[in-house]
Design a protein around this nucleic acid. Structure first.
Lengths: 198, 198
DNA sequence: TCGATAAGTCAACAACTGATGACTTATGCT
DNA sequence: AGCATAAGTCATCAGTTGTTGACTTATCGA
């Protein structure tokens, strides 16, 4: 069988494979162009699949987006041992911000959502995930009556760093290593812990 | 002349007024729904004006967006006197992040752009403005060989705080005063200055 | 008061959007 | 081998998008 034969050969029918191909193509497209900038036909073309299968397998474009962007928030990140907010921030920095962006589906879903932040439902989803799931643990480990504010400042710092890297593409942060940036972030978080109540 | 007469009365023709009405409506719509989520007919309806005037006066939807989102970056924010990065950060916090959001056209253009970050041109514009215009002054006032990285970390912190307030809508930061938040931010920036080279 | 010019209106376009339902074709079991 | 069923295809819909050019109407100086 020649190469041309192989290429023109109709591909085997495989629901699971088609589904994940669609899901991966969707993640890439949504990451790069946002929800509104991506059409179902674009996704299907990337996955080399018929566009109507999106509705067969996911129901709607919105449902596909939701699934492409869903993430399991690791429960109780620093459960035993690492109760230190600075260490916790370091973990989040590694898990969310400094993902290997050469890999497929590399960008963390939080930043995919950020690129579609024009849509109110996406913003709501973002708020739930950031505030309720990621930031909840922080507040109770920080001192002072303004612990909630301090926790959100750490969240803002981490998200801001990710924003600079993945959305804005600022040069220094994009090229920096996690050790370099992590060290500076640790100092900032430590200062936040030590700061007197405002 | 009755009220009904007044209401049904055709309004005076006034190019300048129409233009600014369009511009303000565009700012509001783009702020709330992003570029792709906003149609020219939506904007025109808000401004109570015919949609085709957008193309008469601005050329295209994109050009209208550009003009609606344009901002004069104050040159040399801390030219004389306030050479301290922490003070500079405080100024930016007041100017960009803690704008009075009850006012019309309240959101700072940077965050309007963030809500349309799905579009590559918008991201490019954002990068230019943030890195070249806002962050340039910071780098030369910070110590160490990694001054550029530190400057971008401050940028990330400020943008992240704005993001939490205006896009995500996190509770504590949204309700906080500029004094409260500014105090904590000052501590973080100070720690960044004091940090040893990584 | 007339007429030139600017301001605003209207109908329509071609392209694209997400989505549907009826259709065809391949696959795996008996 | 043949058949039921799952997987994939096709034509098409109805609505929306940005944009255009030809049209009407108001405004204001002569």
């Amino acid at each position: 069988m020649t190469y041309a034969d192989f290429m023109s050969e109709p591909k085997r029918r495989d629901k699971a494979a088609t589904r994940t191909a669609l899901l991966e193509a969707a993640r890439r497209r949504f990451t790069e162009h946002g929800y509104d900038g991506t059409g179902v036909r674009d996704i299907a073309a990337d996955a080399q699949v018929d566009a109507t299968l999106i509705f067969r397998y996911f129901g709607s474009k919105q449902a596909l987006f939701d699934e492409a962007v869903r993430v399991d928030v690791p429960q109780g990140l620093g459960r035993d041992g690492r109760r230190d907010p600075a260490a916790l921030a370091g973990e989040l920095l590694r898990e969310i911000v400094f993902t290997d962006r050469t890999a497929p589906g590399a960008e963390h879903p939080l930043f995919v959502m950020l690129r579609s932040a024009g849509r109110p439902e996406v913003r709501a989803h973002l708020r739930e995930q950031v505030c309720d799931e990621y930031l909840a643990d922080f507040a109770e480990r920080l001192p002072g009556p303004d612990a909630g504010l301090r926790a959100e400042l750490i969240g803002g710092l981490l998200l801001g760093i990710g924003l600079m890297r993945s959305v804005i593409g600022s040069p220094a942060l994009s090229d920096s290593s996690i050790e370099e940036t992590g060290g500076l972030v640790a100092e900032m978080v430590a200062a936040l812990q030590a700061a007197p109540p405002q």
